[in-house]
Design a protein around this nucleic acid. Structure first.
Lengths: 140, 140
DNA sequence: TGTATAATGTTCTAAATGAGAACAATAAAT
DNA sequence: ATTTATTGTTCTCATTTAGAACATTATACA
């Protein structure tokens, strides 16, 4: 059996574009692509690339999974967890992002764990060093 | 400002592959692609196409949005979080410690938030520098 | 209804980009 | 220390998409 994964995408695209009352041309302009390619997406002749798909989902304010018609069932439990975390001072969104990031970057995480154990003076030194490195890279 | 949308994808791919204890080869076989292209995804040299991305999200049993690191709400992060906590108490403790640490170190936190948005290549460079700095300090 | 205009569909070509094979470098194991 | 497993990179080829031009269909309105 062939992959049915993206069957729905063309329909969804047209549906959401209509919903937002865009013409193909208007949508194309927003995304800075040609109109003809929008038509091709909607007719299933061609797939948008991943980046474009993300842009579309943002534009339509829906999840990627919804856009491609593969939205997973919603998870009830989540609100509970969210409540829990909000109570416990971890309500800072940026911190969440950071933790998620560290969760997925083992090396950095290990480094930070070690960094944490260093004398304050050394921490400061490293902090400055890090800042320098990042400023330096910013130039390019 | 450049599109930051898919910054996270390489890390996430590696993270979930590791989590499932696949080698690149094994993952490649499951998806019926070459191993080298898996390596390139994980190093941010190339993007998987939409269909492959969907397959990956199915294989890892996560949403596409989670996979690309653009989960609309923190919901997805939290679920990841939760799973992680349940599975691996040891690691979690360290994550908790890190969270507390970062909560109390605003500068470092800001740096990391910025670091997170850098191109993968720059991240690697900085990571190496950081390692060097820390190794150097270890001597004294 | 006929005509003009707007919106959409399709084709062809050129260009972008990912895929794979082969080779290189690292890491892990023994 | 040497072998083996795993991962990273380069080069080329093949695939696929994007855009322009053209064709078709739908809509407006006289």
């Amino acid at each position: 059996m062939k992959t049915m994964y993206l069957q729905q995408l063309p329909h969804n695209l047209r549906y959401y574009r209509d919903k937002h009352q865009f013409t193909q041309q208007e949508l194309a302009d927003l995304l800075k692509v040609s109109r003809s390619v929008v038509a091709k997406w909607e007719n299933g002749h061609v797939l948008p690339d991943l980046l474009t798909a993300v842009k579309l989902s943002k534009l339509f304010q829906i999840s990627l999974d919804t856009l491609i018609g593969e939205a997973p069932e919603t998870d009830f439990l989540l609100s509970d967890y969210q409540a829990h975390y909000q109570e416990n001072t971890y309500d800072d969104k940026s911190l969440h992002q950071l933790m998620d990031f560290l969760l997925k970057n083992k090396t950095l995480k290990e480094q930070l764990l070690h960094y944490r154990t260093l004398p304050l003076k050394q921490q400061k030194t490293i902090e400055r060093f890090l800042q320098m490195a990042m400023d330096e890279l910013k130039k390019y």
